[in-house]
Design a protein around this nucleic acid. Structure first.
Lengths: 207, 207
DNA sequence: ATATTTACATACATACATGATAGTATATAT
DNA sequence: ATATATACTATCATGTATGTATGTAAATAT
C-alpha cells in the first residue's frame, strides 16, 4: 500500500483510538474483534498492529488518554480556593457534571467499569492505574487534614477514613448512574449528596 | 456412561456451580472455557450442557444463588427494630461484615463487578437483577420516609436522594475494598462511614 | 538520484471454544 | 421384566480470533 505521510499516519492512529472507544464501549473488550475496530476506522488490522502492537496495548492507549481526568478536576477545584467545605462541594459537582456532559469520558468509564474483565494478563497493566487512584486518595486525605486543623472538618475521625468515605460516595454514585443513566440526573443529585456528606442525613441542632 | 441417581446428579450440579464460581472468579467470564469448569468439577462439558444448557445459563444460575443476599440483610436489619439511625448503622456494618467474611459471596461479587463484561447478550438477562436493585432502593427510600416523619432524618431533602446516596455510599465502599482488599479493613471502617452518612463530616454545634 | 524506511494491506498458520450429535449404561417407571 | 428416560461421555463440525510473516509503494533521508 501507498505509504502515508507522518501527519496522515497520526490521523489513522487517532481514528483507531476513536474507533476502539466506540466499539469497545459498545461490545466490551473481550467481545470485540480487532477486525471490527479496523473496519470502523476504515483500515485493516495491519494498521492496528503497526501502531499498537497488540489488542491489550490498544486498550491501554485508550485508557491512558483519560488517566488524569479525575485528578485534574480535583486539582483545579482545590486551587480555586475558598473553604474546605466549598472545595469538597465543587469536586463532587464538577465530577458529576463531567461524567454527564463528556460522552467520550463516559464511554471510557463504562468500558473500564462494566465492559472489561479483570483477567490476570490485564491486571498487571492495570496496577499502574491503581497507583493513580491511590494518589487521588492520599491527596484528598491531605485536604481533609488541613480541614481538621482549621476546624472546618470534624477531628474525631481518621482523615483517611473520611477520604475513603468521600471517594466511595463519589465513585458509588457515578457507578450507580452509569449502570442506569436515565433513572436520575447526576448533576441534580450531586448537591444533595455533597450536603449529606458534609452535614449528615440526620437533623442538626440549631447552633 | 452409567446413569447416576437423582441425588448423584444433584451433587454434580452442585459441584459444577462450585467449580464455576472458582474458575470464573479467577479468570473472568469470557476468559474461562467450559472445559476448564468441567475439569475442575471432575466431569466433561456434556454435563454442563445437560444441567444448564449454555455458558450464559450456568453463569446466571451461579449469580441467582446470591441474588437476595443483600436485601435479606436489609430486611433482617430492619425487622430487628430500634431507631432508624440504628437500622442504617446495622445495615452498613452487616453488609461490610458479610463481604469480608463470606468468601463465596466475595468471589461472586468480584466476578459480577470486575470479571464480567456487560455485553449486549448478557445485558438482557441482567435486567432482571437490576429490578432487584431497584426494589432495594425503593425499600430504603421507604425507610427514609418513615425516618423523616419521626424526625429522625432531616426532611429538607428528597427521600429518594437520601436513599441513593446511602446505596452509593455502601456500594462504593465495597467496590473500593474489593478492588484492593488488603489496603484497609471493611469492618473497621464501616462504623466511621455510617457515622459520616448520619452526622456528616463537619463538626456539629452542641445541642 | 538512489537507498532506505515507513505505513500499512494481504495472506496465512495456529489455536481454540462453542454447540450439536450420537452413543451408552444404568436408574426408574410401569 | 421390560421400556423408557436419564445423566452423562466422546466425537465432530464449524466458526472465529489472534498474531505473524510477507508484500509494496510512496515518503523521507542522504
Amino acid at each position: 500500500m501507498a505509504r502515508k505521510t507522518k501527519q496522515e499516519a497520526a490521523m489513522t492512529r487517532e481514528s483507531l483510538l476513536v474507533a476502539a472507544r466506540s466499539v469497545f464501549s459498545r461490545q466490551g473488550y473481550a467481545n470485540t474483534t480487532l477486525e471490527q475496530v479496523a473496519q470502523e476506522a476504515g483500515v485493516t488490522r495491519g494498521a492496528i498492529y503497526w501502531h499498537f502492537g497488540s489488542k491489550v496495548e490498544l486498550y491501554l492507549a485508550l485508557l491512558d488518554q483519560y488517566s488524569t481526568y479525575s485528578s485534574d478536576i480535583v486539582q483545579a477545584a482545590a486551587l480555586q480556593g475558598g473553604g474546605l467545605v466549598d472545595i469538597f462541594r465543587r469536586i463532587s459537582i464538577r465530577l458529576c457534571e463531567a461524567v454527564e456532559t463528556d460522552k467520550a469520558l463516559r464511554e471510557v468509564m463504562e468500558l473500564s467499569l462494566f465492559k472489561t474483565e479483570r483477567t490476570p494478563e490485564l491486571l498487571a497493566a492495570l496496577q499502574a492505574r491503581q497507583k493513580t487512584e491511590q494518589a487521588l486518595l492520599n491527596g484528598i486525605a491531605e485536604v481533609v487534614r488541613r480541614g481538621m486543623q482549621s476546624s472546618e472538618l470534624r477531628a474525631d475521625l481518621e482523615p483517611l477514613d473520611i477520604a475513603r468515605t468521600f471517594l466511595a460516595f463519589q465513585n458509588g454514585l457515578i457507578y450507580m448512574w452509569l449502570q442506569n443513566p436515565y433513572s436520575f440526573s447526576l448533576r441534580e443529585i450531586a448537591p444533595a449528596m455533597a450536603e449529606i456528606f458534609l452535614k449528615g442525613s440526620t437533623p442538626r441542632p440549631v447552633s
